[in-house]
Amino acid sequence: MHNFITYYIGAGFWGSLVSSIIPLVFILPFALVAIWLELKISAHMQDRVGPMRTGKWHGWAQPLADVTKLIQKEDIIPAAADKALYILAPALVFVGAYAAYAAIPFSPAYIGSNINLGIFYIVAVSALVVIGILMAGWSSNNKWSLLGAMRTAAQLVSYEIPSSLAILAVVMVAGSLNLNDICAAQSGWFWNWFVFGKFPFLFITFIIYFIASLAETNRSPFDIPEAESELVAGYHTEYSGMRFAFFYLAEYANMFVVAAVAAVLFFGGWNSPFGTFLSGPVWGVFWLIGKGMVLVFIQIWLRWTLPRFRVDQLMYLSWKILTPFALVNIFAVGLWVVLRG
């Protein structure tokens, strides 16, 4: 029973439609909640209070108001822009983020598509984002945007290597590319989680994956593609209104994808940390989203703490630090698996 919807409705057209819409239903509120969290957390870290008015209680409706504003805004397409690419780019970026949700096991009873190559699929689909961003930067016909897009392409392509190597280490331990199986391999108490397994190698793997995932989602300290103080928002400088909101939405959707993947790979996914306590299909959703949110919080925390890397330092970190470490790790983990099972 990997998808309760197909169980009830059947695996036909309607079943597929409903199970594909569920992530969308999740992404939109999640993005709003994450934006609100980002606003509030950053504010409190900076001795401010953040939005307090919209929606009375601690400005909870601020993201809603922002989205409403963005919908109402004029959709401007620069005269010199490559119109077709310009329109397609935000959609592609969003699709890249959205499609990844198909393989994320929210609970033992719900996974959009329980494919055997789950993690491989997520890595592959996330790469679509690069193309979207490149298109956005190129089609804007703005020098700053182009610089931002070029930086993104270099950055995302480089960081896919350490992140994939990190994922590979976990896959070796779990012996499966199926995310549900990876979750199942970590059942029981929290010390069964892979992050504590094969100590310290998988812990280092987690760190590598987390850093690489920050870079893949263009989060600070790797936000050089949009670097507001350098490139004035980079690839989405020229975008306005709902198209801009798509980029924004995709960023937060992506944040959760990488957090959820990290939760699945290293923190037991939908497993309860306390054995059978509060476990089950429904609680599984709670645990996965909860673990994902904790990781999202760390992403936000890092963003408001750290300065930004420079392009060459970013490459240095990827190729000279993360990739060698990931290779050594994968070797060590492989050896461990071969020698001691």
């Binding site: 957390i41 504010a43 409190h44 870290m45 900076q46 001795d47 401010r48 209070v49 307090m52 925390w301 408001w304 703490t305």
Partner: peptide
């Protein structure tokens, strides 16, 4: 930054 997350804000409404 974590310490400041739990210190009261200095701004006023």
């Amino acid at each position: 930054t974590m310490r400041h997350l739990f210190t009261p804000a200095v701004t006023i409404q």
